[in-house]
Design a protein around this nucleic acid. Structure first.
Length: 382
DNA sequence: ATGTAC
């Protein structure tokens, strides 16, 4: 009997959820993991403690398969989180917030920040470069708070009290275009030409990394500091070709011997961790706190629970720059799980070791032009 | 998360 004459094996992939019983994981998200596990060619699904439901596929999962499924990565190919040291000594949140540039618009052609992008962007895609986007994306000025592994922060050149820029953004319209081109032809099905998809995917991954550098350079420049190289930059939406398989990461960062900034919320700390995840976790760690409720629920419940002023000035004393009230509610800290529980789950499952915590001073989401000009914009859009 | 249509 030869294997090639056997009927396709109807086996289902294994699913492992790396969360403790105390961690609330929405059942819809686990259901999505099992739906993914049933896909043709899927071998193993590793769900991180920040798992939550996504559009068609779960967010916070690493999925290993012999077949490449673009929809498992989603449209924001190349999205990730980077940490840039910034040579500022002191920072008063109010003054910093007022100095942030408009990150909804690309820098002018003659802006000196383009020096960080010599040769132009991957795929020649200029549109949107240097813009942060929406959703959970942000640029944050944060302070290294508690050092938990001094030998490790020493290696990174960081000490408690240092200021850093944390940048969470991706490939903007470029990744969206790549997924749309696939979806229009093949829906949620596999990529018939994996090499072709991967070539465009790799450009979006490079574009996302460049976008984070341009964003950091813009903010550094606006705050009177020099642009720096990131000490940490991990992409959590991508496909990695590994051991002859396609490892899809969707809201799951590479955790095999790499440092990752696991983002908290706009009002709680984040944690820099040293990842050491193995095959059972598909070599991955969590990428953030993970949503606890949908955007719609966060908006509904948030309006009853918080004022806009409370969301703009957070419990840790930081400011949130966000002229979009709906987004402010959707992204409220209470819409997310407790980052400490997510980190505790990573530790309990031996996926990562905490290195340091960061505390936000100013988190920039989208321009806040003040009430008068907000109205102007709203009218202008009609 | 996105650009775009309503």
């Amino acid at each position: 009997m030869s294997a090639q004459h056997s009927p396709p094996s109807p086996t289902t992939a294994t699913v492992t959820v790396f969360a403790s019983p105390e961690s609330w994981i929405e059942s819809d998200a686990v259901r999505q993991c099992h739906q993914v596990a049933a896909l043709d060619g899927m071998r193993h699904v590793a769900a991180m403690p920040d798992l939550h439901p996504g559009k068609g596929a779960p967010i916070g999962a690493a999925m290993a398969s012999t077949v490449l499924y673009p929809h498992l990565v989603g449209s924001d190919i190349g999205c990730g989180i980077a940490v840039f040291p910034i040579g500022l000594k002191r920072a008063v949140p109010e003054r910093i917030a007022a100095r942030f540039p408009d990150l909804d618009r690309s820098p002018d052609p003659d802006d000196p920040v383009w020096a960080v992008a010599p040769g132009g962007p991957p795929a020649g895609h200029v549109e949107g470069l240097g813009t942060v986007g929406r959703g959970n994306h942000f640029v944050e000025l944060a302070r290294i708070d508690t050092v938990l592994a001094a030998d490790h922060t020493d290696r990174l050149g960081l000490v408690a009290g240092d200021l850093v820029l944390v940048v969470h953004s991706g490939s903007r319209g470029l990744g969206e275009r790549i997924l749309r081109a696939h979806t229009e032809a093949h829906g949620a099905g596999p990529a018939p030409d994996p090499a072709g998809y991967l070539a465009r995917h790799d450009e979006a991954v490079r574009w996302g990394a460049l976008n984070r550098r341009v964003l950091a350079a813009r903010v550094a420049h606006a705050l009177g500091a020099e642009p720096t190289e990131p000490v940490v930059d991990q992409c959590h939406n991508l496909v990695e070709v590994r051991d002859g398989e396609y490892l899809h990461r969707k809201g799951a960062a590479p955790g095999d011997g790499r440092d990752v900034l696991v983002a908290g919320t706009r009002g709680t700390p984040s944690y820099l961790v040293a990842g050491h995840a193995g095959p059972a976790a598909n070599h991955s760690v969590a990428h953030g706190a993970g949503r606890k409720m949908s955007r719609a629920d966060a908006l509904r419940r948030g309006r009853a629970k918080h004022t806009v002023a409370q969301l703009r000035r957070t419990p840790v004393g930081s400011l949130v720059v966000c002229g979009d009230r709906q987004l402010l509610f959707e992204e409220a800290p209470t819409a997310y799980k407790r980052i400490e529980q997510v980190i505790a789950d990573l530790v309990a499952h031996d996926l990562a070791t905490p290195v340091a915590s960061t505390v936000p001073l100013v988190t920039y989401k989208t321009p806040d032009l003040g009430p008068d000009r907000r109205d102007e914009r709203r009218r202008g859009r009609r």
